Simulated assay, not measured.
Amino acid sequence: MSRQAKAVVCREWGQPVQVETITIDPPKRGEVTIKVAACGVCHSDHSATTGKIQYPPPLVLGHEGAGVVVEVGEGVTELKEGDYVVSTFITMCGKCRNCVRGRPVLCENARKSMVTLPDGTVRTHGKDGEDLYVFGACGVMAEYATMHVDNCVKIDDDVPMSSAALVGCAVITGVGSVFNTAQLEPGSRAAVFGIGGVGLNAIQGCVTAGAEMVIAVDTNEKKLEMAKAFGATHTINTNEVEDVSKAIKKLSAGGVDYAFECVGNGKVVEQAYKALGRAGTVVVVGVADMKDKTSISTFALPADERTLKGSWLGSARPQYDFPKILNLYKANRLKLDELITKTYSIDEAPQAFEDMIAGKNARGVIVFE
């Protein structure tokens, strides 16, 4: 059956988000409808409202959600009504070269469903019946969402939904960049640039993986204090040093083994690269503007055997990695509850975006009744 639901919608680039009542169609073959319990407010959602991520409006926001399955479509056997799930904006065809070699985040067919479901259509409509695009095949910043079953990961029902939701983006992006992309070795020295939701998770990923030194780098002193709570051994406020790369090299006795850029800025990538020791690796996690550029010393790549790598959603395999992360959380080895600075109702979504832009939250979460 069709459902009426409040949703957070981007109507025009450069304008504040709007809370609207929309219609959610029932699931078709291979799809499920979930009642969303919680959705994280992510910088990527904001980037979609500014045009930095060029998803066309009108667009239902939200890709970092958790909820309960309330209806299943024809042919769905992986999930049933009552199952708890976390959304993932990675659509995996399971057949292309990257999928079959274990790199589903690089699925060659995923771009077909960046703002629709995999079949190229949507289940979301405005008050006049107009089609509404959905962020990353999800659109979970809404009371209900109909998605393809492959965009849902089943989880245990003993995890708070507000915490579980964060696994779908912030947590896997940060922790996965350490575990999967960098494959950080115990005893390594690391620096994390940009201490937002993703950066905090990169920090705790480094700690869990056994790094002996984790340097947090940011301009916001409040966020640097958060970094300490998540395991950073040292902090650097870039407003207080003349050359952040030299400051890191001094702290780490010659440079770090791994540097994680969680800002999405070419100049910061350059700083991270210069902060490396020999055989060091920069992992670029942040999503930059498409016109942004990075300039590095080409000579240092072979001479120091440095590596520059990208990490998309922490190089995740969602069906495998999400439950693993939640098991680490239940074993008190990863912090999730502590990431949530503030919760909001859906009617407070515009304020949640303002607070995120102002840097007030590690993560703001919209909690649905």
Rank of each mutant, 00 (worst) to 15 (best):
S2F: 14
R3W: 13
C10I: 06
M161V: 05
K127W: 03
A164P: 02
E20R: 15
V263N: 07
A66Q: 10
Q18C: 12
M114Y: 15
G205Y: 00
R103N: 15
C107A: 03
C169I: 00
A275T: 05
Y320K: 13
M213Y: 05
E242D: 15
T341M: 07
Y273D: 05
P118S: 11
A209Q: 09
I34W: 03
E81N: 13
G129N: 10
H43L: 12
R29C: 03
K342F: 01
F353P: 08
G82Y: 03
G136A: 08
V268A: 08
T121E: 11
V140M: 11
D355G: 11
I24A: 01
L166D: 13
Y273C: 09
P27L: 04
S295R: 13
I325H: 01
A259F: 04
A37L: 12
K249L: 03
E74C: 02
V269Q: 15
F193A: 02
V70S: 01
Y55A: 14
R101P: 00
R189L: 01
Y329L: 03
G168W: 00
K291R: 14
L276A: 00
V284C: 13
T49G: 12
V76Y: 00
E348W: 06
E143V: 07
T21L: 14
G197C: 07
S47G: 14
C39K: 08
R103T: 04
Y320N: 12
L308F: 12
Y273G: 03
H46F: 14
G139T: 03
T23S: 15
I236M: 08
V178I: 09
K154A: 06
V167C: 11
Y133N: 15
T91K: 10
